[in-house]
Design a protein around this nucleic acid. Sequence first.
DNA 1: CGGTCCGCTTTTACAAGCGGACCGGTGCGGTAAT
Length: 569
Amino acid sequence: MNGCEGWVASAGHILGGTVLKVNGSSHSTDVRERAAEVARTVFGWPSLRPGQAEAVEAVVEGQDLLAVMATGYGKSAIYQIAAHLLEGPAVVVSPLIALQADQVRHLAERTHDDEEAVAVNSSQSASANRAAWESVASGAAEFVFLAPEQLAKEEVLERLEQARPGLVVVDEAHCVSAWGHDFRPDYLRLGAAIERLGHPRVLALTATGSAPVRDEIVERLGMRSPRIIVGGFDRPNIRLAVRRHEHDHEKEQAVLEQVVGLEQPGLLYVATRGDTERLADVLSERGLRAAAYHGGLKAGERREVHRRFSDGELDVAVATSAFGMGIDKADVRYVVHADITDSVDSYYQEVGRCGRDGEPATATLHYRQEDLGLRRFFAGGKADHARVRSVTSALSTGRPTPAGDLAESSGVSARALTGVLNLLIEAELVREEADGFTLVRKVADAEAIRAVDEVVDRRTRIDESRLAMVRGFAETLRCRRQYLLEYFGDAGTEPCGNCDTCESGSAYEHDDEDATSGFRVDERVEHPEWGEGRVMSVEDDRLTVFFESVGYKVLSRELVEEKGLLAPE
DNA sequence: CGGTCCGCTTTTACAAGCGGACCGGTGCGGTAAT
């Protein structure tokens, strides 16, 4: 079968590393034909792409599946078609209410059926939510869209249980790893919610996923022997460059000058809300149609900026990381970062918003070492000891307690409670059972606090190692694209010829010979101090390994071999 | 961690330098106040 190049699928448990080429000569032509039929008759698509067909087939045959595919490739088609081939409605977990509304509208338009897709959330009236549940109960709704916070509610789980869903879709699944630990703790509770629904097939979808992020999605969602389909990450039409700066002011001038000179439209990412407004003002003065966008704007203002950008009424949107999900504008010509991001994953996701039409586009990172400070601050944070004490003492009855009762007896708000429970579960001090949360054994306050602090410290170390990797991108002398592709697991590429280090020749000077060590990318290894890890990249003189306890570590190959530091697991 | 702002000091400024305080991202849901 042609068109499969660049696609790999791996089977087995997350720790299993079997990588298989997608097998085109499938024995289940039946499923494929039915999928193609649904695509044609229900959605009006002439045919399915290779990754899509493979994915639909796996899901329909009962496998859990993680699909990592570029935005615009058609991830939504996978769950839409699979849902039509399966009994029961599909529960679609989506991070933003605005995205839910988009999907509901598109599905209604496509199928000419208002009850086909419904959403339940806090932005709708109580009567609209009631009507949505009625459509689910009657079987009229094929899709129900929910934020993870909804799945934390007993009432919601009961209604879904009764509807006997055939599929749970987790859209933008990288949010599990990016947001679950602090920002939106209900993302870490999704696995338990899925179990509660009897573990229907799980389909996780995302456009970004380095190996550790993929592993975490699979683990946190409790996916069983999942199939993993990974599309190619390369976006060769995007020119990559980093410009280094000494002083803040000089950096800002360079950013403004560059943005004014580029072919429009484009995106300018900055770190703070204040900077979005300030730089948007300056760019307006310099003749561009510019607007600021950040999470602090009123809903109406956000919608309006989004609309103007999408409709081509803006040259540049100056935004924090709030701007992104749900943007599918094809002709964005550049993404400029005035500040470094918190990880390579975030950086590449934001960069990926330009050049979707395949035409040349540019991505420039303006980098100062001092900018890492803000990211370090965001990576920090401490557990609230008073809350931990309240929750552990409320749990000391020894009886399993539902979250609702626990919020009441501990005096901790429902939302903060979820965060504390996540930490206690990760510290292996609390277990979730069918009828509530329970301590695994009697625990003294001091021990609980020490254990929780350890979990938080481990998270911080991992976040800091992710920051170190994006710093590595900013400072590398090698080909920028090779660096990114290796980060995402595509080893053995050549210098790309379309980045600043290739242009300066530096990439070729530092293009390492083929690695000849015994280590290979993706291999699971064990380190005496840091425990289990996974090889991320192998270079001439060093190895990059992601350890579950400390995050990314760059190791000298000479030392590793001399001391026998890493043993295959 | 780094920047900005404010107020204090200082061989009395149409000023400058310093130290401390404060701030900084992503969104859900529900509640309180109009």
